[in-house]
Amino acid sequence: MNTIIFRTFAPYLTALMVLFSVFILLRGHNDPGGGFIGGLLAASAFAIYGIANGVTPVRRAIYFHPISLAGFGLFIATLAGLPSILAQVPFLTGLWVYPKIGSVELALSTTLIFDIGVYFVVVGTITSIALALEERLED
């Protein structure tokens, strides 16, 4: 897999895939997509980068340990349920705000926070497994 073409191309492909995964994550509420599938995309992006350039650059690039990312995801996904306390509605009820930036109306919700949490859990878990397997290959 260590062809020069792949190695040159992989960083761009990775960047593009991560960007696309965020797009998939954000369109997820009304269209096909969401945190889980976005997370899978991002994880495969890191896996590709790892296959091309080795595991160490990937670990350096994502800075945090993948499992810590998964922990972070679980944390904010659970936190997404807590605004329900202030709104006096049952736990994990979707709460929406529509702030206007210029003429654009943004639809923000606790559901989105939950989905971002799912994204991080999936990225963290799958990347962790993928990197561990790739490290085995390198040995």
């Binding site: 998964a70 922990g71 679980l74 659970t78 349920g81 736990f91």
Partner: peptide, 19 residues
């Protein structure tokens, strides 16, 4: 829900502070 939310939050927190 607190008896479920509290351990999940702490589990996630401890996972982040694992090192």
């Amino acid at each position: 829900v607190a008896p479920v939310v509290i351990p999940i939050l702490f589990s996630a927190l401890l996972l982040m502070l694992r090192t």
